[in-house]
Design a protein around this nucleic acid. Sequence first.
DNA 1: TATATTCTACCATTTAGTAAGTAAGTCATC
DNA 2: GATGACTTACTTACTAAATGGTAGAATATA
Lengths: 189, 189
Amino acid sequence: MDKNNSTLDKILDAGRHLIQKYGYNGFSYADIAEIIGIKKASIHYYFPSKQELVRAVLQRYNKDFLNDLYQIEQQFTDPLDKLKSFFLLYRKTLENDEKICLCSMMAAEISSFPKEIRTDINRFFLDNEEWLEKVLTQKKALDVPSFSDSLAEQSKLLLTFVQGAQLLVRASGELEQYDTMVENVLKTL
Amino acid sequence: MDKNNSTLDKILDAGRHLIQKYGYNGFSYADIAEIIGIKKASIHYYFPSKQELVRAVLQRYNKDFLNDLYQIEQQFTDPLDKLKSFFLLYRKTLENDEKICLCSMMAAEISSFPKEIRTDINRFFLDNEEWLEKVLTQKKALDVPSFSDSLAEQSKLLLTFVQGAQLLVRASGELEQYDTMVENVLKTL
DNA sequence: TATATTCTACCATTTAGTAAGTAAGTCATC
DNA sequence: GATGACTTACTTACTAAATGGTAGAATATA
């Protein structure tokens, strides 16, 4: 799981994990300290305040996620394969330990955050939309032009779908639902 | 806002409001006490523990929501009007004060809850799906049969959509996006 | 009077955050 | 190559405030 095992990276990993599972208001410095076996004062050494910590977690998450999208872009040529990998990326988060996408969680808790953090959260969604639109454009170039809705709007719908699907899976606890839903949403394209 | 102004109802109202805005882990008894102008010990008189309180909030929310859906069912004959009202119901929550559907928030925080509460949350989503399927069935009876996907699956997609749309609106802070997205999703039917 | 409701005054624990210290490493200078 | 100045990484020990929760007194209300 941890690529780099420096204390700083361990803190960021544990923080991300806790937020994805319990939310920003659902974890404490003590939780992180216990997970990685240090004292909580040590966390303050790296991140004086909780908001600074969460911001670092968020920014690294966004960077990593964007990188994953870039990898998908490189790995596949067929736009449909790219879309499937996109949904698989979100699926991986759901697979173990009752987690959802960090930004889905933080979007739900948005009222707890100041402007700068909100901007970062929104940036994540915009990047997702942008990537999806690019892939849909590639797909349109190949397909028989069916109905030409705005691709920007269509990508927004796809993102909306994957965001909501996570909540439904969390509520039911049934991951298999996700696969069926993805299949169905791909049919609508 | 408050129909019944008994203390118990005020507590439930304030609790619901706080959860929808900050989440279960983001509010305290003290917050409720301050909102309605009583001491926090008085809240413990009605709800000895926080989980009992949140469970009461949840059950009342589900009941009220189901009632709203029933009202829509009665008020309109055209299935499309019913669907539009469904989305409008969710829109109302978003309109002021940075709130989302109680069960969307609690689904995100599901790891913080015991089994009984999880069941109630899931019940909400199942009821939504059931209602949507009923309306889609009515719609199918009227329409030229386009493509006959499973209506159960289609209603699940609609629910997924509205759940995710809330998160996007929260992240961007732009409520207008919601209307455009609803328009677009209705086109796909 | 009896009962329902609300209060004051607590409690133990947890919260984010701070201050001061310590051990180990870096590094220039003699 | 040893000495001392400084830095990095982390600890112990603390704080003030907030947390969920309780006991019992006071006050309404029936």
